[in-house]
Simulated scan of single mutants.
Amino acid sequence: MSLYNKKLSISMPWAIVAVAILLLLAFGATSILMTDKAILANEGPLWVFASGVVSGLVVTLAQFCLSWADAKAIDRFRRMGVENVLTTRDEEAYFGQLIQKAHSQVDVLGSTATRLMVDFADPNSPRWEKRALIEALKKGVLVRILVATPAGLDASDQHKYPVNRKRFEAIAGIYPNFEVRYFDTTPIAAFVRVDHELVVGPLLPGVESKHTPALHVYNHSPYAASYLNYFEQTWKTAKPLSQMPPLGNTP
């Protein structure tokens, strides 16, 4: 099992309770150690503790009770492996930072992968995020791209196929750890997987993918599992880039 899949999961509400108890113990011990009076004496440790801490504790507990529901909701999302919710995928810096962190693997599922190639595979750009995918390849990261054949694309996306095909072939000719395969069905989702993290969102007819929302989750999430399994199963039967017909014979 990957070390990335081993996570210590602690409920947020109970973590807050545990911290509060530890703080109370620390304050109590400090009150006792910093005075030579008996614990129950007038202005002794118990009196100081009660007058100085309890009043603040009451306010804190009241606030905690009000926020308990919110804490439980956040905890539920964390247990589902949700890291972030993106209202749009037009976040070049966000994806660039994610790809830059890659240590071993980058998997991409999409219709044409045009934005991936334009935004992160420009070896001549002075901007680091524009070179993120190329830099990952230089480090030896395995990059797999799974996209649709022309038959699976909308008419408005047909022109993107030959453009990206040439980009794919140019990079594959330099980096043996860069693989592209084509599948014959119309894609309904797109994702970028970097090591143990996954950003996934829908592909809606007539809507550019960059304008649709996405979830950033960890691979151990049940939500991620179905997409990762789909990728692996489809990858096995998809046609490698080297076996695609010459561009002149492609409608």
Rank of each mutant, 00 (worst) to 15 (best):
M1D: 10
N5I: 01
N5Y: 06
K6I: 08
L8R: 08
S11H: 03
W14I: 03
I21R: 07
L23M: 13
L24K: 03
A26S: 15
A26G: 12
F27D: 13
F27C: 13
F27R: 14
A29N: 04
A29F: 04
I32P: 05
I32N: 13
L33V: 09
T35M: 05
K37E: 13
A41M: 03
G44D: 04
P45N: 14
V48I: 08
S51P: 00
S51A: 09
G52R: 11
V53W: 08
V53P: 03
V54H: 04
V54I: 15
V54F: 08
V54T: 12
S55C: 04
G56W: 10
L61H: 03
L61Q: 09
A62E: 07
F64R: 03
S67G: 02
A71W: 08
K72A: 14
M80V: 00
M80A: 09
V82C: 07
E83V: 06
E83T: 06
V85T: 09
L86V: 01
T87C: 03
T87F: 04
T87I: 03
T87Y: 03
T88I: 02
R89C: 04
D90A: 09
Y94S: 06
G96I: 02
Q97T: 05
L98V: 04
K101I: 00
K101M: 09
K101Q: 15
A102H: 07
S104L: 03
Q105W: 00
Q105F: 00
L109F: 12
G110P: 09
T112G: 13
T112S: 15
T114E: 11
M117R: 06
F120D: 12
F120R: 09
A121M: 05
A121V: 02
A121S: 11
A121H: 02
D122L: 02
P126S: 05
P126A: 05
P126E: 09
W128Y: 01
L137T: 10
K139E: 13
G140K: 08
G140W: 04
V143R: 11
R144I: 00
R144G: 06
A148P: 08
T149F: 01
T149L: 07
T149R: 14
A155M: 05
S156E: 14
D157N: 15
Y161F: 15
P162N: 12
V163T: 10
R165A: 11
F168N: 13
A170E: 12
I171A: 12
I171G: 13
A172I: 02
A172C: 05
I174Q: 15
I174Y: 07
N177Q: 15
E179N: 14
R181A: 11
Y182A: 07
F183K: 10
T185D: 15
P187G: 14
R193F: 00
R193K: 15
R193I: 00
L198H: 07
L198G: 11
L198T: 06
V200F: 01
V200A: 10
G201W: 02
G201H: 06
P202T: 06
P202H: 06
V207E: 11
S209P: 00
T212V: 08
A214V: 01
A214S: 12
Y218D: 11
S221Q: 08
P222M: 02
S226N: 11
E232W: 01
W235C: 07
K236N: 08
T237K: 13
A238T: 03
S242T: 12
M244L: 10
M244V: 04
L247H: 02
G248P: 00
P251Q: 13
P251S: 14
